[in-house]
Design a binder for these strands. Structure first.
Length: 249
DNA sequence: CCATTAAATTCAA
DNA sequence: TTGAATTTAATGG
């Protein structure tokens, strides 16, 4: 399966070159190991696919055939609960790996993934990746570090969901978005609906709206539609400090 | 949870 | 670029 459009036109904006050698994304594991991988076929066997905003590119329960790296854009990764409620597992940005949990022995994806903005994904087949990992210890080691990190993160999340109050979880979510995506002209650099905040924090849309309202009254945040500004990061951190060690990214 | 109104976003002319 | 149509936010029951 060799398909590689070299250039992908992107909504009247820039053009992205999908060849790893020219890629600017230094957060990417492949890119970082490019020297070690130069003898491998991996880079030639990848495919690059554009993905429109709102498009789901991993479906829960579908067979695992490979995994994705985000070249451009942001993505939400979620799992559907028993009553159809969505639990957002994480928000992922450029350079991150999606679908890795299904990689080892799992046959089917346990998560779904949707592009939050127009995105470009690099896709590597399972076989390709397996061959490369077997041949390349440095690359395999980096992958292992990545998995270890993910496990740590996921354990922290269990703790926060089970031990924090709703208000604390919402604040925690705001801080997570803030430190992962930063802000742009004072507003969080990732527009999310209240529903999405709720699905990450493990609560309901109404709760999020009401907590946002109190936070606004207290002067801790400002909101204009989907654009949220954190006016006092320190005070917010203080409110959840007893639970949190800020280990996750 | 649902209904209502206000506000914001999208879309196409 | 505008405003009409659609979606999302906010509040109160």
């Amino acid at each position: 399966m060799v398909s590689k459009p070299l250039h992908i036109k992107f909504k009247n904006q820039s053009t992205f070159n999908s060849s790893c050698g020219l890629c600017l994304n230094n957060a990417c594991l492949i890119k970082r190991n490019l020297k070690a991988l130069e003898r491998s076929e991996i880079v030639n066997l990848k495919s690059t696919l554009p993905c429109k905003k709102g498009q789901q590119f991993i479906i829960e329960g579908a067979p695992v055939n490979g995994l994705f790296f985000i070249l451009k854009g942001t993505v939400k990764v979620f799992r559907t609960g028993i009553n159809g409620r969505e639990q957002i597992v994480r928000f992922a940005k450029e350079g991150e790996i999606i679908g890795h949990r299904g990689f080892g022995t799992e046959e089917y994806y346990s998560i779904g993934a949707i592009a939050l903005q127009d995105a470009v994904l690099c896709y590597f087949s399972k076989e390709n990746l397996q061959d490369t990992l077997l041949e390349n210890p440095k690359f395999a080691y980096d992958m292992m570090l990545f998995y270890a990190n993910e496990l740590n993160r996921s354990e922290n999340k269990v703790k926060s969901i089970s031990q924090m109050t709703v208000r604390e979880r919402v604040i925690d979510t705001l801080l997570y978005i803030h430190r992962k995506f930063g802000d742009l002209r004072g507003f969080l650099n990732l527009p999310l609906s209240r529903k999405e905040y709720a699905d990450y924090a493990g609560t309901t849309e109404e709760q999020v709206i009401r907590i946002f309202s109190s936070l606004k009254k207290e002067g801790l945040i400002k909101a204009r539609g989907k654009k949220i500004a954190i006016t006092d990061v320190q005070l917010l951190k203080k409110e959840i400090s007893e639970h949190h060690y800020f280990l996750d990214t």
